[in-house]
Design a binder for these strands. Sequence first.
DNA 1: TTTCATCTGTGACTTTTGTCACATACTATA
DNA 2: TATAGTATGTGACAAAAGTCACAGATGAAA
Lengths: 208, 208
Amino acid sequence: MNQNLKKLFPSFSNALIEDINNNAIDKSFVTGDVIMRTGQYIKNTVLVLSGSIKIYREDDDGGEFFMYYLQPGQACAISMICATKSETSQIMAKVVEDAELVMVPLPLMDKWMMQHRSWYEFVIDTYRSRFEEVLEVVDSIAFRAMDERLEFYLKRHKDACGCNDLKLSHQEIATELNTSREVISRLLKKLEQRGALKLHRNHIELLK
Amino acid sequence: MNQNLKKLFPSFSNALIEDINNNAIDKSFVTGDVIMRTGQYIKNTVLVLSGSIKIYREDDDGGEFFMYYLQPGQACAISMICATKSETSQIMAKVVEDAELVMVPLPLMDKWMMQHRSWYEFVIDTYRSRFEEVLEVVDSIAFRAMDERLEFYLKRHKDACGCNDLKLSHQEIATELNTSREVISRLLKKLEQRGALKLHRNHIELLK
DNA sequence: TTTCATCTGTGACTTTTGTCACATACTATA
DNA sequence: TATAGTATGTGACAAAAGTCACAGATGAAA
């Protein structure tokens, strides 16, 4: 784990990595696992070593709105923000690719802010970049219609997987954008006609 | 100013207030002033002593989507988040009620995190509460139709002014929700028919 | 290969939202 | 008190999104 941490979190000081190795717990999850639920108390700050996690905002009627990805080398900003007050989670986190996580107990999260400059900077930077990402999400829903939102969604998924083949059904996309499957099917068809992508069963091949 | 700070930011230690008084600058703004523009470099962290400020997200076509209020006793989370890297602002801040602000130079913002526990806690808490507020805004646009979004908008404005009389034109509301004036007029009319409010020229009287 | 569940395509329709045109109402101020 | 500028009300229509019904395609498992 030590080696992995160093590689994935290059800004961490040796002393910090030492502290993480001595105090944090390594946990594995498989695709489909929900590692954090809305309303649940947060007990750990989460660092991602491998795999892929999607963060959702849920509504009362079972809606699951996709917010952002958590990738190796990143941390869950929400779990850091809630840390100091051990509040409940405002989001839901689902594993979409088998993942190894480092769970840092909340009290340490806070303590390290004072002890390790590199931890402090990492936390602040995580806040900042997530805040900005959420603001971009706000843009996409506040200012844009569904066709552009779909393109934004596909682009983010492409960036996350680093490939051109997205394993997504129309229904999944519709759920994560909080719209209906038919709307997504029709808009995807249009994008295919424009030559932007090629549709297959359960996956979408991006051409641009 | 010392007295005001103590009253408005009761969690601040005396040493911190001392530091603020010695290093920060007091600035006054009048209604309509834009104190921060999208893309502008951030040089200060802003604390609000009096007045009222609205934070907007802007798009390329001049759209101004209302995000949240900054009130006395609060600080601009964005200016704190960008602090460490002196990045550009992702938002626009407009004074809607003559305001007195305390401008804290960025380098101090960072320095105080290590020196003053009460500053550290205030900053973290500001991050957390703003992040949560933005998540609620995401909810409202991701999951709800315009009628509910309008009610949410009115509620937040009522909370902000602490009164039942909102000085807003239909056009202003439409702009801040990124929709058209007619839509707002119609929805307001419906709310009036339901007895939730009473419409006047340039102001709305909330009844519930 | 057959069967079955799931995924995708599509037409028809409704509802919501956005646009245009214009009437009317209110208010500040000349 | 005229009048000009702004605010609001409303009908008609267009466009986007949501809903319903159902057909057909695909792939996994028996």
